[in-house]
Simulated scan of single mutants.
Amino acid sequence: MQVDIILNEYDSPRAMAEQATLAESYGIRAIWSASYATGRDPFLSLAPAAQATSKILLGPLAVSPMELHPLKITQELLTLNELCDGRAIIAVGAGGGVLAAMGIKRSQMVESVRECVEIIRAALTGEDVTYRGDIYTAHQFDARWAKDLPPPQIYVGASQERMSYMATEKADGLMGSDLIPPLIRLTKGWVDEGLARHERTGQPFGVSNFWAWHIKKDKQASRREACRELVLRGILRPRYTEVLLSKEDSDFVQENKGLFWGAFARGAGTIDGAPAHIVDALIEGLSSAGDLDDVDREIERFKQYASLGLTEIAIRVHGNPVDAIKLIGERVVPAVQ
């Protein structure tokens, strides 16, 4: 299993370059720049890192064609790929917070992502792009300037069946989010079936998982951070809570999700009104949290995930990314890669 790092959206491009250089020194496979409505541009943020590094993959996560036209996504991706000499990577998704900030409702999600990937692929041929899809059009786009470099890797953000099948046809890999063992098995089944359907069995195809990392020296600080972010873990959908909790506790979460959203909105380290045993079970099941004595437990978790079919784990660091990268680089990477 390869290890990727997802950086937060608050650090400057200069700081991200330093973090990417550090990650590269540990043999980490990729640095992802998180794309959020409150953050910096996920492509431009990686420009200094592209110049400062030589091996690590670099890319935005996740960009939706509903927030940026696929032709513009292609331009930015190929420009980043040129800056880093063919090391660009991208995750194309259906969108989330950025769309909400723009007041745009998601629609035709699988079709939109499919057409975006097809437009990127068309540009990679080096020929003039003439594309007329059901949703997007791109023509008179010439990317010959980009064809002599190794092509960027294209991942699709996918946690459902149709998107996963489409990814196995069009993309180089997929990235799920907060996938726990039953969902990893389900996703791996979709991947295997899709690759067979599209006659790609045996070809390289990445299966990654966005995973929250809250491990710190201070266990209580870790728990506060994990509490604050907890509602984002799979948006606490029933397919998560029903696995990790009793029916009664799962029903409580579904009926009182506002408590969890409130903690996130306030930046609070506690979820007032939610029983501690529910919060603890969700944190344990949906993230890596605890102190330094808990790192070995998380290594075993990642090894289990690899045995279930993950080829990569994309670790979303919080708080101080330098400390997190050092800890992951020194203890996790040697144990799982």
Rank of each mutant, 00 (worst) to 15 (best):
K147W: 05
T125W: 04
T74A: 15
G93W: 07
P204S: 10
P181D: 03
H139G: 09
L80N: 01
M166P: 02
Q203V: 01
T201Q: 15
M102E: 11
P150Y: 10
Y155S: 00
I180A: 01
C84A: 09
T79A: 12
Q75G: 06
L174Y: 05
N81C: 09
D148P: 02
A123G: 06
K147Q: 14
V117T: 10
A158M: 11
V117Q: 06
P151N: 08
P70K: 06
S107L: 01
A146F: 10
V113L: 10
R121G: 11
L195D: 08
L99N: 09
G93V: 09
M102W: 05
A143K: 12
T168W: 03
D128Q: 14
V98Q: 09
P150S: 12
R87H: 05
G202L: 10
G189D: 03
V117E: 04
G96S: 14
E199D: 15
A171C: 03
E82R: 13
D192I: 03
Q160R: 14
L186V: 01
L77I: 08
C84I: 11
L99A: 10
E161A: 09
Q153E: 11
L183V: 00
K170A: 12
W190T: 00
L179P: 01
G176L: 05
I90H: 04
A91C: 15
L183N: 06
E161P: 00
E193G: 08
I120G: 00
A101I: 03
E169R: 15
M109T: 13
E111Q: 15
A143L: 13
G194C: 07
G176W: 01
Y136M: 09
Y155C: 01
M163W: 05
V117S: 05
V92F: 08
C116H: 05
G133L: 11
G173M: 02
A100R: 15
R132I: 07
G126N: 10
Y136N: 05
E161N: 08
M163C: 06
K72T: 13
V110H: 06
S112M: 04
H139S: 15
R144Y: 13
P181S: 07
M166H: 03
K188S: 10
G133N: 06
L149F: 14
A88Q: 03
M102K: 14
V110N: 03
H198S: 12
G176A: 08
S177E: 04
Y155Q: 03
V117P: 04
M109D: 05
A91Y: 00
T79W: 06
F205Q: 10
V92L: 15
G95M: 09
Q160K: 12
V98P: 03
H198R: 08
